[in-house]
Design a protein around this nucleic acid. Structure first.
Lengths: 223, 223
DNA sequence: GAACCGATATAACGCGGTTATGGCACCATG
DNA sequence: CATGGTGCCATAACCGCGTTATATCGGTTC
């Protein structure tokens, strides 16, 4: 029994405003009062809809994973699964670079707004959502095994290895541990992917060719 | 000209207390009043010594890198550089597991105590200190090239690739994206290292042997 | 149309980082 | 040994921000 038809638009508006605040001003800009002002409501909405600011942060992380998944889903699937892996990795990295603070919230890299209740703990996170966003990646890895390109170990392990390398690279890149963006891409991420592919069973020439193919396809898609 | 000989012990005590608070209660336990109470002083000490809580966090991160460097320096250097790389990786991971919150602060994974001034931004960090802690790793990589074990690409790139994989693995492990600890070690980190080594030029049997040797040496050192 | 229920606007609360203020220990001088 | 000065430190107050108590208003139900 409901007294007022809660318009679901308000929740979506708050999440959108939160992502905007986060993108523009970083974690410390994600505050209750500016947030509700931007959405044209009062602080109570945060509590009736999210239970508090940590709930907002969680909703932002969820939306971030959803956006990431959508972005990866937009990467076309080709006949070369290893090239697809490279393309997905580039798209993944670009998503992180486009909104670093959102990426940080998604993986608990930052804990904005409220320390009372630990929002996104180092040891917490939302593994389920992360898995969902990586179905595309695990799918491409599986296809690489099916095609005989990979044959060392098994797909789930290989996907975890690739994900570790990619996530670690992006984290260190965002933290400023590498130099210029283009350099780090060509000097770290690309060889990392190629070397891992070789270790997983691909031969050197195929890996190099797929690296170029994947990067080329990604560049064509993204201008 | 100095009126009172500032005893450097107080600063060290505050940093030690901060690390203890962090280890026991996580980022949100790292607060000014409990901190100064534990060190037997008042809140002003935080400002005269560190300029504010963000300064404390920064000092904690620095001390964390120093501790990490010391820990890696304690790993013995053998005639097998690839085995040494595995040993260093295991020591590095163990340091992160021993105090996950400290590791989080070091790499800006959490931003405790104070949002006014962004303490450890996603885009900030202290790259210099990180580099210092990895001299041992880069050294072992260079020796692997000198010994002819690695010959694809160049040492600095290879070290960055290995670091990316290791850091990414640890971050995802701490975030709970992998299952049990032992499983993730055997199923993700170990093959990740071996596959990368193969991609960098090592042959399969040597990489597998060095993996076992490095793990064995590390286990002997650490009970 | 009356009663009820839940979301919301307003205003106040409490915690925690910060800062204004006064005192005091130490060093430098004569 | 007296005296002035310097700057660290203890106390207490300030302020911002997440949160919460309270009153109100709109919609649904009988």
């Amino acid at each position: 029994m409901r007294s007022r038809p809660e318009d679901p638009d308000l929740r979506a508006r708050l999440v959108a405003a939160a992502i905007r605040l986060l993108a523009e001003g970083g974690p410390e800009a994600l505050q209750a009062r500016p947030l509700v002002a931007e959405a044209g409501t009062s602080t109570m909405a945060v509590y009736t809809r999210f239970g508090g600011m940590p709930g907002v942060v969680e909703a932002v992380a969820e939306e971030g994973f959803r956006l990431l998944a959508a972005r990866l889903d937009a990467v076309p699937e080709t006949a070369d699964p290893v090239a697809d892996i490279f393309g997905l990795a580039l798209g993944y990295r670009q998503a992180a670079l486009d909104n670093p603070h959102l990426y940080g919230v998604m993986f608990g890299l930052t804990a904005p707004a409220g320390r009372r209740v630990p929002t996104v703990q180092v040891t917490a996170g939302t593994p389920q959502l992360g898995q969902r966003a990586f179905e595309r990646l695990t799918g491409a890895v599986r296809r690489a095994y099916d095609a005989g390109r990979f044959h060392v170990g098994e797909p789930s392990s290989a996907a975890a290895q690739l994900w570790s390398g990619l996530h670690g690279f992006i984290t260190l890149e965002l933290a400023g541990y590498f130099g210029a963006e283009d350099d780090s891409l060509a000097q770290v991420l690309a060889p990392l992917g190629a070397n891992l592919a070789v270790g997983l069973g691909d031969d050197l020439e195929s890996a190099a060719a797929s690296s170029l193919a994947g990067a080329g396809a990604w560049l064509r898609e993204n201008r």
